[in-house]
Amino acid sequence: MRQLAPSSASGSYSRPPSPFPSVPSSYLSHPPLQLHLYAALPCPWAHRTLIVRALRLPSLPLSLALPGVTTSWEFRPPSSDLAHSLPTLSHVYSLRPGGFSGRATVPMLWDPIRRDVVCNDSYAIIEFLNSVAPPDRDLAPPHLRDDIHRWNRLVYSSINNGVYRCGFAQSQAAYDIAVEELFAALDAIEANLAESRFLCGDELTLADVCLFTTLIRFDAVYNVLFRCTKRKLVEYPNLHGYTREIYQMPGVKETCDLDAIRDAYYGSLFH
């Protein structure tokens, strides 16, 4: 657990930075369908990329990993590594020039021709996929980008990472701070959704995608396993309806597998 949940001296959870945090600018003119996305259904960070792929670039080659027994992510039936037929994600990372000795995490955008990691930061990947997809249904239109970034600052710190700060807190003080921030943020968004269909108005954006992948797991996992027990999502009528609407959008439901999420969180990932 401590490997997955490094903490500060105060007992607060500290998320490690991504070792490949941005997509090199050379890829902005690179044919995106020559790249390969590695993701996993249980992971909320990888789930972001699956939703943006489904909505914006559904032909992007994809391999889905499963929680492993002796390693973080592996490929076994019914999953497989469609780029290199390797048994684990660690093996894929090790193909890059110079190899790789860190944790093999999802999501990861891979260049199978150069045999190198393009990026393994979830937000950088979804920004990139959205930017290189056809212009229809842009999830980060220029007139909303300031609002998207404003919401993302709240959503990431207090909600996406906030549930992990609750679940992985190593002191009562750290837990109390994380819980207070989490539910204050949920209350603020509940109030905003009373007057707005999505976070930034009537258009679905990357900010909504990032929020959704935590909300869809909230009652099933975070409320119980991560001790986010003050309220359930179902007790927030606006947030609950918002989550249901996004879930029902064409392509999104297929990225949501609550059985896989429960199995991973309550099983192999944290035990």
Rank of each mutant, 00 (worst) to 15 (best):
M1A: 13
Q3R: 14
Q3C: 01
S26E: 14
L37H: 09
A39W: 01
L41C: 00
P42W: 03
C43R: 00
P44Y: 00
L50M: 15
L50Q: 15
L50K: 04
P58W: 07
L62M: 05
A65T: 13
F75L: 07
R76G: 02
P78D: 13
S79F: 13
L82F: 01
L86K: 05
H91Y: 01
H91G: 01
Y93M: 02
G99Y: 13
S101T: 13
S101Q: 13
G102I: 05
V106G: 06
V106Q: 06
W110S: 11
D111K: 11
S122K: 09
I125Q: 07
N130K: 06
A133I: 11
H143M: 03
H143Q: 10
H149I: 03
S157W: 02
S158F: 02
Y164R: 02
Y164F: 14
A169V: 11
D176N: 04
E180D: 13
L186K: 02
D187V: 02
R197Q: 14
L199G: 04
C200A: 13
G201P: 14
G201E: 12
L204I: 14
T205V: 04
L206R: 05
D208E: 05
T214N: 04
I216M: 03
T229V: 01
K230W: 09
L239E: 11
Y242L: 10
Q248M: 13
Q248F: 01
M249F: 08
I261V: 15
R262L: 15
A264G: 14
S268V: 03
L269D: 05
H271W: 00
H271V: 12
